[in-house]
Design a protein around this nucleic acid. Structure first.
Lengths: 226, 226
DNA sequence: CCTACCGATCGGTAGG
DNA sequence: CCTACCGATCGGTAGG
């Protein structure tokens, strides 16, 4: 938010470490700094919004000078796009892992995974993605996508379609068995809305856990209360 | 997005009307310009976001010069706050009118308004506020409140509480009669999420009408499909 | 409400 | 990745 040039322009003081400590010469940096930038950017973009966050803010957050982020990213927009893509890939990975684990667990018990149980896993995993640790990336994607160029938007949207596609057959099955009413496609949009909106009000210090939220969501959407 | 000073600085050309036509001397302007500014600001804030919209953009949209919005509003933040307050007051008025009309209509037919029917009216009215004509103000409030100062946020939140308070007894009654499962307070948050999210995906040219959305929402949230 | 302007900040770059 | 810098833009103001 302030200062660009160092306070003493001319040579002086034996140059103390700025920001975080330097790596020793041995360890290569293979992209850790890039990751640090992404995490800092995600946090700041979420807190203040993309347009209200300067690249200087992000640089300062990881102990860099104002021009250095542009060594890692072509421009500010590319940084935003990277945050979103990183976030979506991670969310997709997490969702796949959760479903696979649930399927494996059901199989081990000698039955198949019911649609209802599968929805629970998807909802729970989605809340984790939205509200769990490292959960700045997806909220940024949800609320800042209009700041992307059309080309970047298409790339992110492809990942998003993959993520949402997993839900479709589950909701269809629930509809077919009478546990979900109405057009499944509209239902999907509203369900995502109900879940995604939680980033606006959820407070960790609150009493409700992610399991509580999951339970509340299933009670709200599904028909026979079991 | 460009130009500040006029193209010909020195005196020239007999000063044609810039932007919209001037009012004739007779009609006082009693605040129409202020209203125009609010509407233009709401539209631009919604399309581009608060931080990405310059006061020059807003001025240009109503045919003013760059400094003139500050004759009507103390600063850019105050303009945002006014958009939100105007929007909330209008939404609250519309909601009250809708409920009152429904109550009157039921009374005229000799019965009282059921909780289910009341929820339908509230949902329908909310969709109108979010997606109907002049629906830029509330989306701006929903998605830009972090740009407000704490004091302004409090004022807007008071109106918001009034708006949401109407829903509480209705949801409680539906819960008591078994048509809504789970903690009504969590249900309310998720229902608002499902509805508010529609500003992200609803497309007027689409087939679904606001009545379709209302129907889908009730089918999704309420238990016995009637 | 316009004219004319200011200081601050911002995204980004050349050169090392 | 830092130094040193640039052009553009932005919110806001004095004076009429």
């Amino acid at each position: 938010m302030k200062m660009d040039t160092p306070s003493s322009p001319a040579a002086a003081a034996p140059r103390r470490a700025r920001g975080r400590p330097r790596k020793t010469a041995g360890e290569r940096d293979d992209g850790n700094r890039r990751q640090e930038l992404l995490r800092a950017a995600a946090r700041l973009f979420r807190q203040q919004g993309f347009a209200a966050t300067s690249t200087r803010d992000i640089a300062a957050a990881v102990g860099m000078r104002s021009g250095s982020p542009f060594y890692h990213f072509e421009n500010k927009e590319a940084l935003l796009a990277a945050v979103m893509q990183e976030g979506m890939q991670s969310a997709l990975r997490r969702q796949t892992l959760a479903v696979d684990a649930a399927v494996a667990s059901a199989t081990a018990l000698g039955h198949t995974l019911g649609a209802r149980e599968c929805l629970r896993v998807l909802v729970r995993s989605h809340f984790e993605v939205l509200l769990g640790p490292d959960s700045d990336f997806i909220p940024v994607m949800l609320y800042e996508w209009r700041s992307l160029s059309p080309a970047q938007r298409n790339e992110v949207n492809a990942l998003r379609r993959d993520y949402e596609a997993v839900w479709v057959p589950v909701l269809q099955a629930l509809h077919d068995s009478g546990q979900l009413s109405g057009d499944p496609s509209l239902a999907r949009l509203m369900i995502f809305g109900a879940l995604n909106w939680s980033v606006q009000w959820y407070d960790e210090r609150r009493t409700a856990t992610l399991d509580d939220l999951t339970q509340a969501a299933l009670l709200l959407f599904l028909k026979d209360p079991s």
